[in-house]
Amino acid sequence: MSLALFWIFAILTLLFAVGVVVFRSPVSSAMSLVMSFVGLAALFVTLDAFFIAVVQVLVYAGAVMVLFLFIIMLLDLRTEERRPVKLAAWAGGGIVLAGFLVAIARVISSLPGATNTKPEILPGLNDVAQVGVALFRNFNLPFQIIGVLLLVATIGVVVLSRRELK
């Protein structure tokens, strides 16, 4: 049952990810990215990471994708006209992709315990509380710094998107 769910969501995620790359219309790409992220969130659920799954949906599939769609509409991007495909680009992409796949395969196959199934964990855990405890107890300073980073990013965006005053 759990294996079946894994395959369903994994294939969903990967298919829509391929869609992001393949679709010619930016809006289609963005929508398939949303679906890919939702599938990824479901994979997180199969890993008992409920909090991360929820954050994934809220932040990525929600906020980030809305931002993408806004920008697409703001820039008024239409479906790309077909440009002649560059052989060099495809060849380069192929080489790098093949290299990556080989590297990943070799790493995973040489990883000890890669074929273990999920070990048992305590049932009925309060996932959010555990992440919160780890966050505020072990990573308090990084958490504060992340807050500052967000502030800086906000200011940066305001400055960047201001029109030149002349």
């Binding site: 380069g92 790098v96 070799r106």
Partner: peptide
Amino acid sequence: IQAYAFFFGLGVIGLVHFLIF
């Protein structure tokens, strides 16, 4: 930019092979 990404990817693959294998 994509050519740079290509070189970058090659570099990463090379690093993985040299560092791990």
